[in-house]
Amino acid sequence: MSNPLIKLENVTFKYPDSEIKENNFAVNNVSLEINKGEFVAILGHNGSGKSTTAKLINMILTAESGKIFVDGKDITDENMTEDDIFEVRKKIGMVFQNPDNQIVATVVEEDVAFGPENLGLDPKEIRKRVDEALELVNMKEYARHAPHKLSGGQKQRIAIAGTIAMKPQCIIFDESTAMLDPMGRKDVMNTIKRLNKVEGIAIVLITHYMNEAVQADKVIVMKNGSVYLEGTPNQVFSQPQKLWNAGLEVPQSIELIDKLNKELGFDIPLKVYALDECTEIIKNKLMKE
């Protein structure tokens, strides 16, 4: 594998004291890597530093110490110019939690065009990108609609389209599914997976939902500003106790197996199971008797 797309080395950040307390949690000595085309989920309790980490990568915030590399370039370098910041944001797109607060224009396609317009692209190229992006998120028929009349999931897909139209190498989703209903969440998750698998865009998914995280290639669990657990979904979710300690939970299938193991002395390995796999194992255990 070539250079990682994003690399954090011992990054620390502290909000100034004047900030409201919620944000007073620092990012503390965080090191992590995100490769090109990788799908990484970041889990953590509220205030664990996951959103702050995302904002550091996107240069909304500046790290106090440590180094952050984006596509090989050190973005913590003091000599970063405004144009350099521009380049970083072109590579790393971001979709936020509240769909209402990231849509700029009064017409869907105008909003999707906002990013490419800022890049100073040719009008024809912008048109092409906008159409492609809306196609990718399945919102083409809403191109001329007013965003405020759409559902939460639809708005969020518009926000995603607005980011894709800038052709980033990576998109960070900062709890982008938190305010959606189950249907909207499913739509957005399907879109995210398609972007990753088909378009090869690296995904950083910050979330509270375990069933979203199990779909990632890699899971990072943060606790009180530091990386607490890291690994494949199987590795991470095989440690239910640790996840509970971090204020999180595990999928019910793992909780069930964990409890069966403890109460009935089973030795079923803890990992992420598909429904069929999970029930087959339990059935076999029961049938043996």
Binding site: K90, G115, P116, I126, M166
Partner: peptide
């Protein structure tokens, strides 16, 4: 995050 930095260098669709 969507690279907005005012009207300079901005084009329109």
């Amino acid at each position: 995050c969507r690279c907005y930095r005012g009207g300079n260098g901005r084009t329109r669709m």
